[in-house]
Amino acid sequence: MLKVYGLFLVSGLAVGSLYALAGIGLVILRRSTGFLNFAYGAMAAAAAMVAWQVAEWGAWQPVSWLAALLTGIALSVLYGRLLAPALAWREPAVKAVATLGYMLILLGLMGLLWDDSLRKLSLPTDKIAVTLLGVRVTVTRIIALAVAMAAVVIMILYLDRSRMGLNMRSLADNRDHAALIGIPIVKVETLAWGISGALAGGTGLLFGSLVRLEPTVITFMVIPATAAAIVGRLTSLPMTLVGGLVIGVVEAMLTLYKPLAPLRAMTPFVIAGLMILWMQRSTTLTFATKE
């Protein structure tokens, strides 16, 4: 029986790292610009579809990966430069709702460009695997976890240690003050959107390969990813990583409990809901806090 738990632990970590990866992308942008980007999944989906299209045209594979990253960056910076500034002084919820609009547009465009047919996005790392507790884990999955962990470490170092990181944090905290003390707002924000877009592109590639290459599937992955981000209170990168992994493991383990097995997909939302309740355990008044 222990062996079976091992199987599902590893499987859960593999899926959890996908939730974590996308959640981390959300949190990074949120910390550096104040936007919770619901269009993140749609950007990732577009990147994955572009990668497929470029490969389909016969390009060398690394070119298609580069195309995915560039698509992510382009879509993200496009929003960050053209649309986000108009909302800069609005409350966070309104900023988030505006990205829903961008999500709908991207979803519609993808529907127009690519009809529903069978597609596959293969990465060379899909074929190489190591065996862990009885489960074969492909290098692609290890990359997903590694990228998530590396993103956490690098972004913590970057946001906490570097000048640009400091600028980003101050900008997200209070745009007016940041502008007042001479932080180059446009430059900093563009960089933040670009980093987030590149992560979206990479996430899209991994999702397209590991989950399914369907625009709607990847687009709505943003909802469970948001659950992981909620575990990290939308600010903590390590907690988001842990949240994603825990969600993945719990979801996988539920497979073993027959009555709940078909409802496993509820896991991210139940955990996020419990997290939110726990976060406000000490509040006694019914007053809504600012956030």
Partner: peptide, 17 residues
Amino acid sequence: RMRGLYLALVTLMVAAL
């Protein structure tokens, strides 16, 4: 006790459930 973004997220989780 929530408003703004968190409330929106809670409702999104409920809808997904």
